[in-house]
Amino acid sequence: MFRFNLLGRIMGIIIIASFFGGCSLTYTIKEPVVSSIDYGKKDIMPITLNIIDMRTGDDSTFLVARLGPSGDISKFPINLKNMENPIGYFTQSLEKELASRKIPVKCVVGKTAADELTLEIFRYQIINRRATGFSPWEAMHIFSGNIVKEGKKTPIKTFFYGGKTPVWSMDELEEPCFNIPISIIIKDVASKINRVVFNYAAPDEKIDRLNIEISSEIGKTVEGPFWQVLELGYTNNPKAIEPLKRYSQQGEEFFRSCALSSIGTVGGEDQLEFLKQRYYGSMGSFNDRYMAVKAIGDIGNNEALEFLREIRKDSAYIKESGLKSCVDLYAP
């Protein structure tokens, strides 16, 4: 055990030495696998979604690195292959995700609002944070925009937190800190566009099938069947709420946090007290607390926003980048 711990510390020193020594990190971003959600609608008239990049100032930087104990913005280079154009990647992936749900939306990048439907993007960003070579690499994925339909603007926001302490190589960050959260953000935005514009819901039978899949897979891997839990949130069916509450209190941390996130995605407006309890009852779990806050932000009513503003008075708001990023997104 002593040899293993010593070896781990040596590897950590090597990693941080290269990390702060001017090297860059390069990760390959995959094309997101579309969800299995099908709202069962037919004969839907095709529509065009005009996507306008309205990011300005600091929010226009897609990849932000806050490295070292101070958390100041660093010029440390992080390269994402296949995502050199983040808005283009987002646009193509969003269209494929909506099409997989049988919603025929043509997504195009434009400069002015369209008559049919417009998505204004104010922030699409990954904030990377690491204090030391022995602390986790944290990736805060943030999206903020407006969906504009017939002149009415509705905010679309979402957040996801991924973190990992690399042991052998910085390559270990590729999936938990980049590929998985990038895919989740796109699916969550698609779900919220559906709620605002179409309000289609998957049938109860889909909820039942997902629950069977989750029950058969839970416990087989560390992360658990988190994709299926997230899909419960994409159904836009209130029948998903009760199983999601159950899953948010069992299994490993990442699995639970995905269930909490999904409560917000599916529209659990009457679950505010439950989510507050999960926030206070998960003080040892960053993922659980942050995604409970995300779900509260998704609810977005006056009581929910007041709760988020109260979190600003907590010392954890200052100390924890993930908590601060989520609170600031939903309750600026």
Rank of each mutant, 00 (worst) to 15 (best):
W227L: 15
S257D: 07
R209D: 04
F254A: 08
L260V: 06
P203R: 05
S262G: 05
P243F: 01
F226K: 14
I263G: 07
S257I: 06
P181K: 01
E252S: 11
S183N: 04
M170K: 00
E213L: 09
S183V: 02
S261F: 05
L275N: 02
G268C: 08
E174T: 03
S248N: 07
T235N: 08
P225N: 14
S248G: 05
I186R: 13
K220N: 08
I241K: 09
G219D: 12
F198E: 13
K220C: 04
I185F: 13
E223I: 12
F255G: 13
S191E: 10
N194M: 07
I263A: 02
N211D: 05
W227A: 11
A202N: 05
A259W: 14
M283T: 04
S191Q: 12
D171N: 11
G281H: 11
N236P: 05
G224H: 13
T221W: 06
D204F: 03
E231G: 06
A190M: 12
T265A: 10
C258M: 14
K192N: 15
Y234C: 09
C258F: 12
L244W: 06
A202M: 02
P238T: 11
D270K: 15
R256D: 09
E231S: 07
D171L: 10
W227C: 05
W227R: 15
C177D: 12
F178P: 01
E242W: 00
P243R: 00
E172K: 01
T265S: 07
E253R: 15
I212D: 06
G224T: 11
L272Q: 08
E253S: 05
R256H: 07
Y280A: 14
A201K: 14
N179M: 01
Y200S: 12
E213W: 07
A190H: 14
A202Y: 01
K245S: 01
S183G: 10
K192E: 15
G219I: 05
F178K: 02
V266E: 09
E269D: 15
L210Q: 02
G267W: 05
T221R: 06
D188K: 13
A240T: 02
D204L: 00
I186Y: 06
T265F: 03
D188E: 10
R246K: 15
E217R: 08
N194F: 09
I193W: 11
G264A: 10
